[in-house]
């Protein structure tokens, strides 16, 4: 008896300590889940559920005789993927992405190189170069509507000084996509310049020092040092600009409404028209939305796969 007691006595606190640890661990877990709950609830309702619902809706067509849905399976995806509207929209979106990414990144790099100097008053130029990050797509679009105005716009007035015939920037099918791209490039120039400038400033001075000791000329320095050292940043900017191009909506809606002659009818604009103006095309819009999701996912996967560190875009 006494033997058992002497053995049990020291064990007692040990058991309760383990128990306490377990309770504390459980309490911490509960706190963790409670803290994550608000975010998870919002994500569940407004991101995960609608994403799954979009995939699901893509399998159905609206019943023209009522509000019911008819299951058509993967047929709708097949039909959407092979439809003329989808092909046109995809080509238009890809062209729009090409214009805005190439234009935006080249100009952004030029501005960043210009602003990457230790000069008096350089911060004023940096602020101006980055100012478009505060501009909304609606504000930018309204400004560019004025600039593009065929009779009173400043662009055609400047062309007239050069004795060039006026251009119908937004109403000509040949020019509309290009014009929307110009407005978009301007809008995104601030972001591109900021990120590329930060990238340039991250390149160690010593690299240029030793290059100059080796007698490398400025242009050679640009191609042997600046460009390779900047490539991760450049890559990041290109991926983000591509994603933004595929997601662009406001400038299309305000500048051209997808016209003229569907010249600016992008994938996102097609989703919007089918979902909200084309009765019974909810399924088509959903299938197109899923395709858009897959395209963005590919861009993100490329970014995550190539970039070593994690990259977050808001």
């Amino acid at each position: 008896m006494s033997n058992i007691a002497t053995v049990a006595a020291p064990e007692r606190p040990a058991v309760s300590a383990a128990l306490r640890r377990r309770i504390s661990y459980a309490a911490q877990a509960v706190t963790g889940y409670v803290f994550l709950a608000p975010s998870l609830l919002v994500f569940a309702v407004f991101i995960f559920y609608p994403l799954i619902k979009s995939i699901y809706l893509g399998f159905y067509v609206s019943n023209p005789f009522g509000n019911g849905q008819v299951y058509v399976g993967a047929d709708q995806y097949r039909r959407v993927l092979s439809s003329d509207q989808f092909h046109t929209a995809l080509v238009t979106t890809a062209l729009f992405a090409l214009y805005t990414v190439v234009g935006g990144v080249v100009l952004g790099l030029l501005l960043a190189l210009l602003a990457n100097a230790r000069l008096k008053g350089i911060f004023i130029f940096r602020t101006i170069f980055s100012s478009t990050i505060a501009t909304s797509v609606a504000v930018a679009s309204l400004m560019w509507i004025l600039l593009f105005n065929p009779s009173i716009g400043v662009l055609n007035w400047a062309l007239s000084l050069l004795h060039v015939a006026r251009i119908n920037w937004l109403t000509s099918p040949h020019w509309a996509l290009f014009s929307v791209s110009i407005a978009t490039i301007w809008l995104q120039l601030g972001f591109n310049t900021i990120v590329l400038l930060a990238g340039l400033q991250g390149i160690p001075d010593e690299l240029y020092e030793s290059a100059r000791v080796d007698g490398a000329r400025p242009l050679r320095q640009f191609f042997t040092i600046t460009l390779p050292m900047l490539s991760p940043t450049l890559f990041f900017v290109i991926v983000i600009a591509s994603i933004r191009a595929f997601e662009s909506f406001g400038q299309i809606d305000l500048l051209t409404q997808g016209g003229p002659n569907n010249a600016t009818f992008t994938l996102v604009y097609a989703i919007y028209r089918n979902a909200f103006f084309n009765f019974g095309a909810t399924g088509v819009a959903s299938a197109q939305a899923v395709v858009l999701f897959v395209i963005i996912l590919l861009f993100t996967a490329i970014q995550f796969g190539v970039a070593e560190r994690k990259v977050f875009y808001g």
Partner: peptide, 8 residues
């Protein structure tokens, strides 16, 4: 992308 979830 937010554009892919607007319908639901």
């Amino acid at each position: 992308p937010a554009e892919a979830t607007i319908v639901p």
